[in-house]
Amino acid sequence: MPAFSLEPAQTAWCAELRTLAADRLRPLAEKGEPGRVNRPLVAELGRLGLSARLFTSGAVDLCLMRESLAYACTEAETALALQGLGAHPVHAHGTPAQRERWLPGVADGSVVAAFALSEPGAGSDAAALSLAAERDGPGGSGWRLTGEKCWISNAPEADFYTVFARTTPGAGSRGVTAFLVPADRPGLTGSALDMLSPHPIGALRFDAVPVTADDVLGEADRGFRVAMGTLNLFRPSVGAFAVGMAQAALDATLAHTAERDAFGGKLRDLQVVAHQVAEMALRTEAARLMVHAAATAYDSGAPDVPKRVAMAKLLATETAQYVVDTAVQLHGARALRRGHLLEHLYREVRAPRIYEGASEVQRGIIARELYKEHTEHTEHTERAEHAEHNDLEAR
């Protein structure tokens, strides 16, 4: 299937998701407390079968879900995404016992998951993690986790955390291990952070928290692969979240400028307004296409996935910021009132440019992959020319 084309069944599913989000999820979201995990909303996502799809769908379906939910209810979209982010490492790298213990609860909405990577001193530089995993005694088979995590979505209310800790000091990304840490482990405490974005975010403190080999996700000292593999899947879907918000802002702007009287006509009759709306639509569609292309590349196992998903997240999140900001400008002061759709989107749209790799990090990834491709192409060309030269000499 081309990246720019959706099948009729997919289009119908997206429309169904928008309706579900508006009719069944938004009322639950409106009853939630900002900055707290909305467990009734998480449970409803489970009842609707959306949480279970996190473990059976590819990147394309994940992006379609996130864009469709974001259009009508950003809280539902974020709740679903956070479940996937926290639980995907268990699904992809967990032991049978780990998967059996935790994934059914995530799927039915009774268990809340969280992805604990960032630290106060290691946000964008994920390889600089300092949460220490020290061996539990001489020759011990377990570890004790000591340190802090910060900016962790669903903390401190999650039921379990996918935690990344340093098991080998001084080894950079090669000395990090991923652990599945239940929230009731002794020594694990947390606190909520009051953030601009309304979804739950907190800090975690580890005071010699015990973990064993049974808690490792994947292999010891190979946890950075677990983290990056998870982010490669979820980064294009962050872009899909952004596209959903941009589309909602665009549609609100179309309705407003078509109805609003100004300067002897409708706002849409002003060329400057019409051109701004056209630019909003152009950028939104371009971002959507790049998101779909990146998701298709991920599902097909393309070799350039890191570059594509970085491009998709970067373009889509920066685009959404532009579109929402322009929508606020065209609506005027009414868009700044508490409770207005655009006031809500204006607060929501800022964070995706930072989390799961800030825009600057994405640019770094893109440049690194481009130079890597250039070097590989150059070396391949030189080898081919050398072989041809030797062949001619042999003749």
Results as ranks from 00 to 15, higher is better:
residue 38 N to W: 01
residue 221 D to G: 04
residue 164 F to E: 05
residue 385 E to D: 13
residue 209 V to K: 02
residue 62 L to T: 09
residue 188 L to D: 07
residue 44 E to W: 01
residue 179 F to N: 08
residue 52 A to S: 14
residue 228 M to E: 13
residue 392 L to N: 11
residue 22 A to W: 02
residue 154 N to L: 03
residue 15 A to N: 04
residue 339 G to S: 00
residue 101 R to Q: 14
residue 102 W to D: 05
residue 377 H to E: 14
residue 101 R to P: 02
residue 268 R to E: 09
residue 119 E to P: 04
residue 354 I to C: 01
residue 358 A to S: 13
residue 315 L to N: 07
residue 271 Q to N: 09
residue 196 L to C: 02
residue 226 V to R: 04
residue 356 E to Q: 11
residue 279 E to R: 15
residue 134 E to H: 11
residue 103 L to V: 03
residue 231 L to T: 03
residue 245 M to K: 09
residue 204 L to Y: 02
residue 297 A to Q: 11
residue 291 V to N: 01
residue 197 S to Y: 11
residue 31 K to F: 00
residue 293 A to N: 05
residue 85 L to T: 05
residue 73 C to A: 13
residue 28 L to M: 08
residue 191 S to W: 12
residue 212 T to S: 15
residue 59 A to S: 15
residue 287 A to I: 06
residue 99 R to Y: 05
residue 238 V to T: 13
residue 234 F to A: 03
residue 79 A to Q: 09
residue 249 A to F: 04
residue 54 L to H: 06
residue 282 L to S: 06
residue 351 A to E: 09
residue 88 H to L: 15
residue 361 V to N: 05
residue 214 D to W: 00
residue 330 L to M: 11
residue 45 L to A: 10
residue 358 A to C: 11
residue 133 A to M: 06
residue 255 A to N: 01
residue 41 L to S: 03
residue 371 Y to M: 12
residue 98 Q to G: 07
residue 354 I to D: 08
residue 35 G to D: 04
residue 358 A to N: 15
residue 367 A to Y: 11
residue 272 V to C: 08
residue 273 V to Q: 02
